Amino acid sequence: MAWFYADEQFPFPVVELLRTLGHDILTVQEAGNADQGIADDEVLAFATSQKRSILTINRYDFIRLHRRDYNHFGIIVCTNNRNWEQFAARIDEAVTAEEPLQGKLIRVVRPVT
């Protein structure tokens, strides 16, 4: 089981499915940080302070943040996938294979069809 912090654009149906798989997920909205225009580096800092890995579809900005500083609890960058069940399963498989997630950048890409 992983502890995640889902950024503002991350699809909530995937959050719910990951919770059913046993992951602990706090969303930006649940943390009360959604409407403040919080910058990506602040999202990462908050996740790190909570010892949570970031779940995001904002790949480029978070890859850049990872390259700048590996001192975090994991960043999972994803390509958006409208097949929610497949999306959640691919995240679950990727993080299970990589645990512990601290300092890692994990890419979860939509399968080619």
Rank of each mutant, 00 (worst) to 15 (best):
F62N: 07
E16Q: 15
D7P: 08
F62K: 07
R90W: 03
R59F: 03
R110N: 03
T96M: 11
F4M: 02
N83S: 08
I63R: 15
T96L: 12
H23W: 09
E16G: 05
I25Y: 08
Y70T: 13
L55P: 09
E16T: 13
D69G: 08
R64P: 00
E99C: 06
R110P: 00
A6M: 10
K104Y: 02
A39R: 10
A31D: 14
F10L: 10
F4P: 00
V77M: 03
H23G: 12
T56R: 06
A39Q: 14
F12Q: 13
A45D: 09
E99K: 12
N81I: 09
A97G: 01
P13C: 13
A2F: 06
S53I: 01
A39V: 03
E30Y: 04
L105V: 03
V109Y: 06
F10E: 08
L65R: 01
F10P: 07
I54Q: 07
H66G: 07
H23Y: 10
D61S: 06
V112F: 11
I63W: 06
A89V: 07
R52V: 00
D40G: 10
Q50S: 14
A45G: 05
Q102E: 07
R59W: 03
D40A: 15
R52T: 00
L65E: 02
F12E: 12
V95R: 04
Y60F: 10
W84I: 02
F73K: 05
Y70A: 14
E98V: 02
D24Y: 07
T56C: 07
F73W: 15
T27S: 15
E30I: 03
I57K: 11
D24R: 12
A94E: 05
G22V: 12
P111D: 05
Q29L: 13
G32Y: 01
Q86I: 04
V108Q: 02
D92I: 05
A47H: 10
Q50T: 11
Q29G: 08
E16H: 11
G37P: 11
N71R: 14
M1C: 09
N71I: 06
Q50F: 06
F62V: 02
N58I: 00
F10Q: 11
A97L: 12
A2M: 13
A2W: 05
E16F: 10
V14P: 10
N58D: 03
N58R: 00
